[in-house]
């Protein structure tokens, strides 16, 4: 069975690239374009891991994590945060809300995404 990954990210090109890379690696990918859609989708898809952007329209990544904390089932899903700014304050907040790991957009390449995902779910 393929492991399922939910990408919640509004930047189209990032989504395209991640989707391509992760599909090549053999994951089953679903995509949500904002936080609201993401929450709805994680309930339906029940992903093994979530890649979550912080700054998004409608509902941001930090709010999504707050919502996930309220739901026992959702709270168990590992989250890797995609940070745009890479500011320690932001990462700190994400970690407090249960993020397992983080990626800073300008500072990593797709190979690193794979590494971090494998570390979480193999």
């Amino acid at each position: 069975m393929f492991k399922k990954i939910l990408i919640i990210e509004d930047e189209e090109i990032i989504v395209d690239l991640l989707q391509r890379k992760l599909t090549n690696e053999g994951y089953e990918i679903s995509v949500a374009r904002n936080g609201e859609e993401g929450l709805k989708m994680m309930r339906e898809v029940k992903p093994d891991l979530i890649l979550l952007d912080i700054i998004m329209p409608k509902m941001g990544g930090l709010e999504v994590m707050e919502e996930m904390q309220k739901d026992k089932k959702l709270a168990k899903i590992p989250v890797i945060v995609i940070s745009n700014s890479g500011q320690p304050v932001e990462i700190d907040k994400a970690q407090k809300l249960g993020a397992k790991d983080w990626l800073i957009k300008t500072e990593f390449d797709p190979q690193e995404v794979i590494k971090k995902i494998k570390k979480q779910i193999g």
Binding site: E11, I14, P110
Partner: peptide
């Protein structure tokens, strides 16, 4: 500027 630059970086890398 960081967002489009990341997109370029990722695309080139892939």
């Amino acid at each position: 500027l960081r967002t489009p630059l990341s997109a370029i970086k990722w695309t080139l890398r892939m």
